[in-house]
Design a protein around this nucleic acid. Structure first.
Length: 341
DNA sequence: AACCCTACCAACCGCAGCAGT
DNA sequence: TACTGCTGCGGTTGGTAGGGT
């Protein structure tokens, strides 16, 4: 029944790897590969390490052609675009960036990109608030003589949609669910029994990324954007904004789109993200909810088939929605999409 | 010089799905 | 069929370097 225990946890070394350990692991894998069994590997080499630890060390640090730090602007754009599109599926995002590991990208996002984007958003919102305050003061001074009339007016700040689950009217699987799933699987995702078998093999020295390593960063970026855009509902929902078109698809694809047919600059992206301020933080949370996932990881290992009938409209502050004139434009289409137009 | 704070990053941990027995 | 190990993934933690006071 079963197999031998993974490792004796009381007898394994933890913490930073020494150069000697690195050399041993690198030399062994370079010569023999991992043998498809990370658990047995440390014993073979004579390392007092857990197999998981060896695997992590190899994948994140010792593997050939690994790049550390120094993310380019193109790479930043790719990371942001994909994060907005698919959430914190770091392995899929990493598959788009040659030499980058999911851990590296995750760290880079958490320590820099997230702050960069949030900071940008906050500055932008403050600027908008200042303008609005000015307008409001002007409006009030204009209206001091019309107080009684104003009492009968429609409230200035209209009621906005709130983040409540809304039943998907159609209950039908989204037609693009399959293509999206295929894309993510192709990128190395894990979404179903069938999909799992198609994961790229990363366990030997002849590891290859699932894309053309000769591609330039620009091509990679364009490919990532175009591929995802082409697999989703761009064609039947033309963009109304100059840069982007966002759809929270509640009928199964659990995609939030932020793509058009040309690259989105980081700055543009900040302005076109529909949610305000902390919404960026909760992007993955929204995805979690849509996925029905209750764990800490965002949609980790969630089957697309589980996604069913919940639609979470983006939360937009009354203030910002009013400023942007978006209220009347927020609508549910018959198809079950919620759109910001 | 000493302390504190912040940012960064390597590594660990727990979970989920698959596979072997 | 049930149990349990293996693998991969994403979230989190802890050590450390660097800057400020």
């Amino acid at each position: 029944m079963g197999r031998a225990p993974c490792c004796d946890k009381a007898n394994v070394k933890k913490g930073p790897w020494s150069p000697e350990e690195d050399a041993k692991l690198k030399a062994y894998i370079g010569q023999h590969g991992t043998g498809g069994n990370w658990i047995a590997l440390p014993q073979k080499i004579g390392l007092k390490r857990c197999g998981k630890s060896c695997r992590l060390r190899w994948l994140n640090y010792l593997r050939p052609n690994i790049k550390h730090g120094g993310f380019s602007e193109e790479e930043e754009n790719i990371i942001c675009s994909l994060y907005i599109s698919i959430g914190s599926r770091w392995s899929i995002i990493a598959a788009q960036l040659p030499g980058r590991t999911d851990n590296d990208i995750k760290n880079y996002w958490n320590t820099r990109l997230k702050k960069k984007l949030l900071g940008k958003q906050r500055r932008e919102q403050l600027a908008r608030q200042a303008i609005s305050l000015k307008q409001e003061m002007k409006r009030e001074s204009d209206q001091t003589s019309m107080v009684s009339e104003a009492m009968n007016q429609v409230p200035y700040w209209p009621q906005l949609p709130v983040a409540m689950p809304i039943a998907n009217p159609s209950q039908e699987p989204h037609p693009n669910q399959d293509s999206i799933r295929k894309l993510l699987v192709k990128r190395g995702g894990r979404f179903s029994d069938h999909d799992h078998q198609q994961q790229p093999n990363i366990n030997t020295t002849n590891f290859q990324y699932p894309f053309d390593l000769s591609s330039t960063q620009e091509q990679l970026y364009a490919n990532s954007v175009d591929t995802i855009a082409s697999t989703t509902s761009m064609s039947n929902t033309p963009s109304q904004l100059p840069n982007t078109h966002y759809v929270i698809n509640g009928s199964g694809s659990n995609m939030i789109q932020g793509f058009n047919s040309y690259p989105i600059e980081l700055d543009d992206m900040v302005y076109s993200i529909p949610q305000q301020l902390d919404e960026l933080e909760s992007f993955s949370g929204v995805l979690d909810n849509v996925n029905g996932s209750t764990g800490t990881s965002s949609a980790e290992s969630t089957s697309w088939g589980n996604v069913s009938s919940l639609v979470y409209p983006p939360m937009v502050s009354n203030y910002d929605a009013s400023q942007q004139g978006m209220l009347q434009d927020c609508s549910f289409r018959e198809s079950g999409y919620f759109e910001l137009q």
